[in-house]
Simulated assay, not measured.
Amino acid sequence: MKSKSRSILILSILFGYILLQFLWWEVLLVKQNDKIIGEKQKLVELMSTNEVQLKEDIAILHHKKKMQTVMIVSEGTVFLLLLLFGVYRIKVAYDKELFLNNQQKNFFLSITHELKTPIAATKLQLQTLQKQKLNENVQQELIANALLETERLNMLIDNVLFASRLEADEFIAKFEKQNLSILIDAILKRYYKNEINKGELSFNITPEVFHEIDSNSFPSVITNLIDNALKYSFPKKEVLLELENKNGMPFIKVSDNGCGISDSDKTKVFTKFFRAGNEETRSTKGTGLGLYIVNYILNKHKATIKIKDNIPNGSIFEIQFYEV
């Protein structure tokens, strides 16, 4: 931040110096023009013997003086506008470069944290199995936890790879009619068994809700929304997913009781790598890719997603499908 402020200060001083120099040169040109016209007028007065002709010559000189002054001011104004536009473009480019650098920094910080956490947890569980003689039930619990961490690590890598495919415009959706009720129920029970058992995640799924979806990408919509809701729900996690038919089309709602999303960030959260706050001080995990992927996939499905405040605390993500 100090580097940015220093750069802006230097740029402002440089621009101010150029502007003052330019205005000074323009004033000097106008004064020089007045002086030249004045000397010409004196010369005409000395040489002329015809009073009528003298008045005409002086009028011509004053007109010429006025035209040259207008020309100097006009050309100066155009130059000043071009200078202002150039400075503006430089600032836009600088801000964009700074934003991209911050995005890259935040992404590497977050992805490192995201990768280390499941790897460290899995390593600890496997070391425990290796070094201690445990009964069958404890062994199975440790193995299940290790597999769960591996599954989540795989989901993270899939998100990064999927985002790379989107960036390269390599994603192709294949739509087939699916029973969303069965599909979403299976996704929740596969990835969030522990959260469901703890009461942190509940769901209300209307049976027999059908729609044409891409079965390869659509699960990412559910997992990213649930992960996001669980991540930002504290101190007590209470996430609810609902599926129903609304106006004859699928309608999905994910509600949480977390910290919520400010109005200014509601449109930014679907931007790639965007995360509110500073990555070095943020305690919650994440890469800033989840909601970006959600929004992209839903656009391909001709679906809309909206964010609302969950009174008194938290957020509500609403997804409305339309005809593909």
Results as ranks from 00 to 15, higher is better:
Gly290Glu: 01
Glu212Asp: 11
Ser217Leu: 07
Thr287Glu: 10
Glu280Tyr: 14
Ser233Gln: 09
His301Cys: 01
Ala173Thr: 10
Ile305Ser: 01
Arg282Tyr: 09
Val294Trp: 07
Gly286Pro: 00
Glu167Met: 12
Thr284Gly: 09
Asn245Trp: 12
Lys193Asp: 12
Leu201Asn: 04
Asp185Lys: 08
Val254Pro: 02
Cys259Met: 12
Tyr232Pro: 03
Ser283Pro: 13
Asn295Pro: 05
Ile222Met: 00
Leu183Pro: 01
Thr267Leu: 11
Lys302Phe: 12
Asn197Phe: 11
Leu298Asp: 04
Asn245Asp: 15
Ile293Glu: 09
Thr304Trp: 08
Pro219Gly: 06
Ser220Phe: 10
Phe210Ala: 03
Tyr292His: 09
Glu244Asn: 14
Lys193Trp: 04
Ile252Gly: 01
Ser283Phe: 14
Lys189Glu: 10
Gly248His: 10
Asn228Arg: 03
Ser264Trp: 06
His211Leu: 04
Phe171Thr: 13
Leu230Phe: 06
Gly277Thr: 06
Glu167Asn: 12
Pro250Gly: 02
Thr287Tyr: 09
Tyr232Gly: 06
His301Pro: 04
Ala163Asp: 13
Asn216Thr: 11
Asp214Met: 00
Asp169Arg: 15
Glu279Met: 11
Asn245Glu: 15
Phe274Met: 04
Ile187Asp: 00
Lys237Trp: 02
Arg275Met: 15
Lys300Gln: 15
Lys237Asn: 02
Phe273Gln: 13
Glu195Asn: 06
Val239His: 00
Lys268Pro: 02
Leu241Phe: 08
Val294Arg: 03
Lys253Thr: 03
Gly290Arg: 04
Lys236Tyr: 10
Leu225Pro: 10
Val294Ala: 10
Phe175Pro: 14
Ala186Gly: 03
Ser283Lys: 15
Tyr192Cys: 03
Val239Cys: 03
Asn278Ser: 15
Thr206Val: 08
Gly290Ala: 07
Thr271Arg: 14
Phe203Tyr: 13
Ala173Phe: 08
Gly286Phe: 13
Ser264Asp: 13
Thr284His: 12
Lys268Arg: 14
Lys253Ile: 02
Val269Gly: 03
Leu243Ile: 05
Tyr191Ser: 08
Pro207Trp: 04
Asp169His: 14
Cys259Lys: 13
Val269His: 06
His301Gln: 04
Asn299Pro: 02
Asp263Ala: 10
Val254Thr: 04
Leu201His: 05
Thr206Glu: 11
Glu242Gln: 07
Ile182Cys: 05
Phe273His: 13
Tyr232Met: 10
Ile293Lys: 00
Lys253Asp: 01
Leu241Val: 11
Ala303Ser: 09
Pro235Glu: 13
Ser202Gly: 13
Met249Gly: 08
Arg190Thr: 05
Phe210Lys: 12
Cys259Thr: 14
Phe162Cys: 01
Asp214Glu: 05
Ala186Pro: 04
Arg282Gln: 12
Lys272Asp: 06
Tyr292Thr: 06
Ile172Tyr: 06
Phe203Ser: 08
Asn299Gln: 15
Glu200Lys: 13
Phe162Arg: 06
Phe218Asn: 00
Lys300Arg: 14
Leu201Gln: 08
Ala303Lys: 07
Arg165Gly: 15
Ala173Tyr: 05
Ala229Met: 08
Lys246Asn: 09
Leu289Gln: 05
Val221His: 01
Phe171Met: 11
Gly286Ser: 08
Gly290Phe: 05
Ile222Arg: 00
Asp185Asn: 08
